[in-house]
């Protein structure tokens, strides 16, 4: 059995990693303030926003894929916007997958961060305030270091979840090599065509990768706080 990956397979893996990295970076930027707000707000909108963030956890990927295909299409609101900006339409493009994945992976970033921020409590930030730290200052010098395990797990889960995405991409990707054909779709194609050897190679890579991510996640996990 030839285990060396072909150029096409390497291209597919590289594309998948590029997608997951882009999505994770965007979600770190978007998800952090959102999680911070959810962790500290007493607003009556908290429940609504929290539910919206969690929606992709329970929504079938086909539902998300269907709505995104219509919304990003030439007649959809997102499509009209992107066309007005001279970007064309998003389905079947790398950035279309990025937009879809940002929605799809949102809870995997926000929920661990929210839990981490909530577990900090008021006290450290009150202490920071008495030392005349600004809100922003306190956030970066107190909250972020304390929530670092949360950041680590949120980042890894988001990355791994985006790598494992399949249903949404099948619906809006169009299977273009180097643009939208990610590893999970490529495996599906190989299986459909009874090309089990090729499927095995990529599936093996995915299996090892996913296991290593989870192993790292559980191995680095700090012991649970005593008491409280």
């Amino acid at each position: 059995m030839d285990v060396a990956l072909t150029e096409t397979e390497l291209e597919t893996i590289w594309l998948t990693l590029r997608l997951a990295t882009t999505v994770t970076l965007i979600l770190l930027g978007v998800g952090t303030p959102l999680a911070w707000w959810l962790a500290r707000t007493r607003s009556r909108w908290k429940g609504l926003i929290g539910a919206l963030v969690a929606l992709p956890l329970v929504l079938p990927p086909s539902v998300l894929g269907f709505y995104l295909l219509l919304a990003m299409g030439p007649q959809g609101p997102l499509g009209i916007l992107t066309q007005a900006l001279g970007m064309g339409t998003l389905p079947f493009t790398f950035w279309g997958l990025v937009v879809a994945s940002v929605f799809y992976s949102l809870p995997f970033m926000v929920q661990p961060l929210q839990t981490a921020f909530e577990s900090i409590g008021e006290r450290p930030l009150e202490v920071a305030a008495t030392l005349r730290a600004s809100h922003l200052d306190a956030f970066f010098t107190v909250a972020v270091p304390l929530a670092m395990p949360g950041f680590l797990s949120a980042t890894m889960l988001t990355f791994a979840h985006t790598v494992g995405e399949f249903g949404v991409i099948l619906m809006i990707g169009g299977n273009i090599p180097g643009e939208t054909r990610v590893v999970s779709v490529q495996i599906y194609d190989h299986v459909e065509a009874l090309e089990y050897l090729q499927a095995h190679r990529l599936a093996g890579v995915m299996l090892v990768f996913s296991f290593l991510v989870l192993l790292a996640l559980y191995a680095w996990r700090p012991p649970p706080p005593k008491g409280g």
């Binding site: 295909l69 007649q75 389905p91």
Partner: peptide
């Protein structure tokens, strides 16, 4: 369906 939705 890709054509019907105008995406192609």
């Amino acid at each position: 369906q890709f054509v019907q939705t105008g995406n192609a």
